[in-house]
Write a protein that binds this DNA or RNA. Structure first.
Lengths: 193, 193, 193, 193
DNA sequence: GATGAATGAGGCTTCATTCAT
DNA sequence: AATGAATGAAGCCTCATTCAT
């Protein structure tokens, strides 16, 4: 939550790209220092420990998610438009910075540190709640069918989107994620109406 | 692919539970030996390297998946029943052995070793193809609506199931996964008809 | 000194070729067992310890040297002919079994075990004494010049021959050692007359 | 080739003395760290790997040899004097630092690492070429007899010197190497004139 | 004679971290 | 802010050897 210095931000992003490239096992202070082009000891000027770097990574994602959701919540769009809006926003974020994907959808990476695992769970929950909320609203407004549980639909949207993004990553970002997301949105529009 | 000795199987399952408990970083030869109650060196009588243990883990899941899918493929049930059958089978497998979940849905863990990552991708693909196949059949038989792409539906089923299972795990297996899966199946039955 | 069984001889020769190929560090029980196509434990049926295998290697060379020298000592040839005879005999031995070279001229290999180091020194000394003897005889008989110390000449012959053989080995046995030895003999014949 | 820091030099010399005392098998990171009175891990601040320590050892000898030969090459002495000068220089070097002997004449030690073995071969060759050169010059100037191949004489000088030094070492440096070298020089002076 | 399983010591190397400068 | 040197723990793995079968 606390503000990061420029240097700290650089370190956090280096850490993210390191995880992206080499997995969590590749995130070592040595690798990090090499990428930052300074000494291992210097890292400790900026973060008290490796754990705090991990925490900063999660924090970054948490606040990014929060700010996106907070903004969208105030929208006056119809349910399908709003769903579209959110998923496209995430999609663009991932396309701009694919390294994020390797961390944000990989709860297993943080198995060790339960505080971090909880934070990632919070992110999942925030998204689910948001989707639940808009689908529920849509059902009330009659914009989408109301013969199913909105919470299950929320899980379905998030789960499907996650797998779509993960496949994109596992395939080496070869194709456009935006296209996939759009196809997905068409699918949900059909399914939900 | 090769058959495992009893000892090798014990080691593989110890490794899985270790990953489950402490994450991939907790899977060390030292931890593994301690859990097996013998020496680190003894591990190497049974596996040539740590990498081969990881490979054996993946292999296990791959062949389990394959044998489930092969069996179900010969079923003569209706599409919704078949879908139900498969997901329930997986659910029971996870409930019997929750540790599996920590590995089978965690592609990031194997970022390093691309052969293993590919194997996990194969598992995803096998499942997707299977779901695609049965939905497609269902659409042809008129058992489920056919105004959407069956492949997207397959991704949706798998993605939703994965997230459901992962949430179950992140919540410490507190509640019954079987119940969740059943609710999910009801949801899909509604959605698809 | 003790007689070796057939199996023991096989092991000794495998050990020699292992040292030849990979250096003393390559002589491990595991490697040895692999080469013999049986188990590590099986080695211990035939030798009580690795040290005894090394001892057997040295013993082999020692007795080979001794038997060659003993035989030649009874010769009635002239000094130059006798010198020629001995060096050619060694040369043929090395050409038939180049692996020997890697061990017999490499005292450093046995730095650890001083008993073995002493044995190798004995081999050097036996040869030197033999050469000293025949040169001395030759000088007395007037077959070779007598204005130098025969012991120094002996060291010179042995040292020059050793380096010649070692160069042959370091060059990968590419050329004929026999030719080199013959050129050497011509050189000594000129020098000594 | 690159310059060594003071610490690196200390480590290199510790390594040489370790090989001298216990053979190549005694050169372990643990032993080296103990001798340096610091941690094993600390070694890795100064050398990236054990291999680089070995390489530094060879490099040291290579450049020492080169600088000796380069200096002597510019001498205007007569052939016998020059030969004497070089061998005495080497002798003093060995007497000052007997540990060198255990490494510089022990090509077998580096059987594994062919780059290092080649470097040692280069040292042999440099010396041989140098001896060949001065003998050849001597023969042209009429300072030494010219009825033999100068290259064979070079091998003979080097081989004899090597064996003399090695015997000195095998005998535990009990006697004066300088005396032996001087006797050798007398021998060669007689032989070559 | 030979195997399979195991051990304890030790191999090289990397880890996160600290501290004096 | 940053470096260089160091540490102790731990990483993976191989060593020679033993023992029950």
């Amino acid at each position: 939550m606390s503000e990061l210095t420029t240097r700290q931000q650089e370190i956090v992003w280096s850490a993210i790209s390191l995880i992206d490239e080499k997995g969590i096992q590749g995130l070592t202070i040595k690798n990090l220092a090499a990428r930052m082009k300074f000494t291992e000891a210097a890292i400790y000027r900026h973060f008290k420990s490796k754990g705090q770097i991990l925490a900063a990574i999660i924090d970054l994602f948490k606040s990014q998610t929060q700010s996106i959701l907070t903004e969208k919540k105030q929208s006056t769009k119809t349910t399908p438009e709003l769903l579209e809006d959110v998923l496209i926003t995430y999609t663009k974020m991932f396309e701009e910075n694919p390294a994020i994907v390797s961390v944000i959808f990989a709860e297993e990476i943080f198995q060790n540190e339960s505080a971090l695992k909880n934070s990632l769970m919070d992110i999942i929950e925030s998204n689910e709640k948001f989707f639940n909320h808009i689908i529920n609203q849509g059902q009330k407004k009659g914009e989408i069918r109301n013969d199913f549980d909105s919470m299950l639909a929320a899980t379905s949207i998030l789960g499907t989107f996650r797998l779509t993004v993960k496949k994109w990553k596992l395939n080496g970002f070869k194709y456009s994620l935006l296209n996939e997301t759009k196809r997905l949105l068409v699918y949900f529009r059909v399914i939900f109406s």
